[in-house]
Simulated assay, not measured.
Amino acid sequence: MASPEIAVSVDQVVKRYGNVTALNGVSLDIRENEFFTLLGPSGCGKTTLLRAIAGFEDVTEGHIRLKGQDLVDQPPFKRPVNTVFQQYALFPHMSVTENVLFGLLRKSWSRQDAERRAQDVLELVQLSDFADRKPGQLSGGQQQRVALARALAPRPEVLLLDEPLSALDLKLRQAVRMELKAIQRETGIAFIFVTHDQEEALTMSDRIAVMSAGHVQQVGTPKEIYETPVNRFVADFIGETNLLDVQVLSVTGGLAQVLMPGNRNFKCPAAAVVNAGPGHLSVRPERISVCAEAAGDLSATVIDHTYLGTDIQLHVKLVDGEAMSVRLQNAETTLMPETGVVVGLSLEAGAARLLAD
């Protein structure tokens, strides 16, 4: 099976602002026809990297290539990429069609070809019926789709999206996510999406790069990022997890033997570069079940529980005082343990993972 073509290659990119290093040796390959997300907290470098790909930021060191062509010395207007920003920057005095036409006519498209292309992209984003309206007559989600249509109209080879859903309310954001993913599939071009929202990244992406402090911590599919985090930062940043202090007795062939709180031996998968000694175990709350104390991998005292609709969050404390969270489906909570009761916690096979620091 042939390897997928690389749309964008980022090679050891460094970006410094005086004494501040925003990007520190970042390397990534983004494939053609891929929805690729840069995910991380504010200040981690994700928007700086996106702006460097667009050409709005010069890089201090390294190379950015689009389908093999080095872009470092190319100005933004010569790069075959377009960007959708947080603020859609639509012309309020122009109609939806005129907003889409504007960039095409600036790029010397003929009026006839530009109008045909504008009709095509407005149909793609399901706004054909709103073509004559002004941006002020549209909802936030519709304005976002106009901005998307305008960016797609010139047929860029890569589309860059800088937190374009952040201005939308929760329900609309959830609906637009699916529309955006469907549009990416239909256009067949690479989308590079920046967000700090983990749920957005997990639901929309083919692959995710988790960033922190100018470094790429891990690249993988949503399932790989969530189920097999490589270190404490990724495990703690993506979703909810329990991080337990353990003593690592040995690591052999990717499996670790650890001493859990309460001095119980436990075997689990280990991330690369983990040595014997103090360590941290990650286990997702939904991968834990409650059982009799003697049958569990851990013993814990029930502190409280919180009703969350589809499930119930159980707050417990281990024998060494560490707090843990357990999520139980409502269908499984007919025998909900009462506050103060000592229970066993059983970890699903493969659910716990020993992390690198």
Rank of each mutant, 00 (worst) to 15 (best):
A271M: 15
Q247S: 02
G277I: 04
V96W: 04
A182P: 03
L49A: 15
L104R: 05
M211R: 01
G340Q: 00
C291S: 09
A89D: 02
R327K: 06
P80A: 12
G279R: 04
N82W: 04
L314W: 00
G344F: 08
A182I: 00
H305T: 09
R116H: 15
P269F: 12
R51C: 08
S250R: 15
L127R: 06
F102A: 09
D11V: 11
E293A: 12
A272F: 11
V176R: 05
E123R: 11
D311S: 04
A149D: 11
M336S: 10
V319E: 11
P41M: 12
P285L: 03
K171A: 10
A356L: 11
A356C: 13
S282N: 12
A201S: 12
I183E: 01
Q137R: 06
E322M: 12
D320K: 12
P261A: 01
V125W: 04
V176N: 00
S128G: 11
E338R: 13
L160R: 04
D245L: 07
M336L: 15
T333H: 01
R16W: 13
L180V: 02
L202N: 15
A352D: 14
V100N: 05
L90S: 11
P337A: 02
V319F: 14
L318K: 05
N275C: 08
E115M: 15
M204Q: 01
D357V: 01
L255R: 12
N99V: 00
S139Q: 10
E332R: 14
G344H: 13
R327L: 02
R232G: 02
V274T: 06
G62H: 00
V84T: 03
D162F: 06
F102I: 13
